[in-house]
Computed example of a mutant assay.
Amino acid sequence: MALSQLDIHRWNRGERTLVTLAGDIGPATTPLLRTALEQCLLDGVTVIDIDLTTVGSCDARGLDAGDPAAGRRAGGPTGRGGHTVRRRPDGHVSVR
């Protein structure tokens, strides 16, 4: 079985960040994605736009990683809750 690879790039724009992904989102790469998104929240980012244009495949765990606040609605390590994840028609995902 070939190892999955996921390149993650982040561009900050004040309290908003664009995260672009290239590769496959699956069991081997989901932890990397979740860590990157959680770090955005810890850095005070209030809006995370995720560009999935160059993602080859994404399983259900990868979709769950798109919501770094999943399971933390009552607060938790990030101290934030109630984030909304939206997938736009252009392939971007927005976390608010």
Rank of each mutant, 00 (worst) to 15 (best):
2 A>L: 12
2 A>C: 09
3 L>Y: 14
3 L>T: 15
3 L>W: 14
3 L>M: 15
4 S>G: 14
4 S>C: 14
5 Q>C: 09
7 D>A: 11
7 D>W: 04
8 I>Y: 05
8 I>P: 05
9 H>I: 03
9 H>K: 09
10 R>M: 08
10 R>W: 09
10 R>V: 15
10 R>N: 12
11 W>H: 13
11 W>M: 11
12 N>P: 09
12 N>R: 13
13 R>M: 10
14 G>K: 08
14 G>R: 06
15 E>Q: 02
15 E>G: 00
15 E>C: 00
17 T>S: 07
18 L>V: 09
18 L>Q: 09
19 V>W: 03
19 V>Q: 03
20 T>A: 13
21 L>P: 02
21 L>N: 02
22 A>G: 02
23 G>A: 01
23 G>D: 01
26 G>V: 00
27 P>S: 07
27 P>K: 06
28 A>D: 13
28 A>H: 07
28 A>T: 08
28 A>L: 06
30 T>C: 03
30 T>R: 06
31 P>G: 01
34 R>C: 05
34 R>S: 06
35 T>H: 00
35 T>S: 01
40 C>I: 07
40 C>E: 11
41 L>E: 06
42 L>Y: 04
43 D>S: 13
44 G>W: 00
44 G>D: 00
47 V>R: 10
48 I>V: 14
48 I>M: 09
49 D>P: 01
51 D>G: 06
52 L>M: 12
52 L>E: 04
53 T>E: 07
53 T>S: 11
57 S>G: 12
58 C>H: 04
58 C>D: 05
59 D>N: 06
59 D>S: 00
60 A>P: 01
60 A>T: 08
61 R>S: 10
63 L>A: 12
63 L>G: 10
64 D>R: 12
64 D>F: 09
66 G>M: 15
67 D>C: 11
67 D>Y: 04
69 A>G: 14
72 R>F: 12
73 R>E: 15
75 G>M: 14
76 G>K: 08
77 P>D: 07
77 P>E: 10
78 T>M: 08
79 G>M: 09
81 G>E: 13
81 G>P: 10
81 G>F: 07
83 H>P: 02
84 T>L: 10
84 T>I: 11
88 R>F: 05
88 R>G: 09
91 G>Q: 05
92 H>K: 04
94 S>F: 01
